[in-house]
Design a protein around this nucleic acid. Structure first.
Lengths: 220, 220
DNA sequence: ACTCAGTTCGAACGAACGTTCGAATTATCC
DNA sequence: GGATAATTCGAACGTTCGTTCGAACTGAGT
């Protein structure tokens, strides 16, 4: 048969939505993704060679291509899975909570908990955001846009609930900056856990957007 | 002579601290740095080839090596110059200002103004922070540490002046995150200028750290 | 016109890159 | 245990990588 990877991937795709079983193919694929994430995190997407990835997953160079048709698709799968998971987790946690401040605190906590529990994957997601091209890029961009819009919705709700006045776009992007920058500095031996950092950042950010009421201090 | 670049660089290094004149060598070198910054910004350090850099500066591949002994040193020169300039500018602007809140606003404004006026260089500084190794890395890290410590000093002063209570480390790193993340989203056709964004971020951040007074909302 | 340091370049080096392919190996089912 | 499909691999492909080298060009001083 011509291209083994295409053929096998099609037949292997008949897996249930159920979590545990999964085919051998899917399990091995997930393993490789984990090791590749670690390598991409350490050396960067461009800096990591397929030979590095093969060594990390204890597999031959050619063997990798049974699971992925290209290095770019491998990065794509990592980013898509990571992003999808974090959005799913957020939606589940927001369910049933109506207070708009509490909902933003949940957003921050969910983001930072996932970030610190999956540091390598989140660094690859944040740091290699521009590495994908065309089709791959736009599919990840769509998930990112959904995530961004959820946050905008939460902040706009807070704004109207409490009659606040701030630029939602700047506030949202500042919040993402505060949170995502963590991959450049967090040291588990020095820094507190996600819940504590989320509390601290939530305090600063929420007081910051709420303390003002209406208008800027000097009316500029 | 064996290695022309080493010899010429030594003889050419007799330039004044004066701004304008500079030797031909220094002027050409600066030009190449500008073009290389643009390429590193667009394609990343690993993703940019020496051939890309040669094309961008209208020079032959071999010609570049008259000015730099390696690609890594080229990145180093860009990062060191950018970081040194921003720290210098900050120190000049802080001189004579004593109010601790105003000093932090100056820090934010200086950072964002330089960031948006030199987006490519600042992206290369932020995004390729881990690309350098050993000696190059530690020299840039020293400047970064100085810059970080200045910010810690400013915040600690505010904290003691006003009897506040927050974790300086988290606050500083959150502030850097807010500001540095801008390279991922700022669009000059949509977003306001540096002064306006600095005002907005300054409001959120300063209210955030000042509104609390002492202790966390739930005493955790 | 000649000199000589400063500057640029074409051509090439070996190494490493992403990817392919056919054969070999391993697991699965009758 | 033999047939069939799923999985793995060694070896090689053509390309591009960072870097080097000696020759050629340029411009200022004499």
């Amino acid at each position: 048969m011509g291209s083994p990877s295409t053929a096998t991937r099609v037949t292997a795709r008949r897996r249930r939505a159920a979590p545990a079983p999964a085919t051998r193919y899917d399990r091995r694929l997930a393993e490789i993704l984990v090791h590749a994430t670690e390598v991409f995190c350490k050396k960067g997407y461009e800096g990591a060679s397929m030979r590095d990835l093969a060594r990390a997953s204890g597999m031959s160079l050619a063997g990798l291509y049974y699971y992925f048709e290209s290095k770019e698709r491998l990065l794509f799968l990592i980013q898509k899975h990571t992003f999808t998971t974090i959005v799913q987790g957020l939606k589940a946690r927001l369910e049933g909570v109506s207070d708009s401040e509490e909902r933003i605190r949940i957003f921050i906590l969910n983001h930072l908990e996932y970030f610190l529990a999956n540091q390598a994957a989140m660094k690859v997601l944040s740091h290699e955001a521009e590495a994908l091209k065309n089709g791959f890029a736009s599919e990840v961009a769509a998930i990112k846009r959904e995530y961004y819009r959820i946050c905008v919705g939460l902040l706009d709700k807070l704004k109207s609930d409490r009659g606040l006045q701030f630029q939602t776009r700047i506030a949202v992007l500042s919040l993402f900056g505060m949170m995502n920058w963590i991959y450049t500095w967090h040291n588990p031996r020095v820094d507190a856990d996600a819940e504590s950092i989320a509390g601290e950042m939530g305090d600063v950010f929420l007081r910051g957007v709420m303390a003002g009421g209406k208008g800027r201090r000097d009316g500029r």
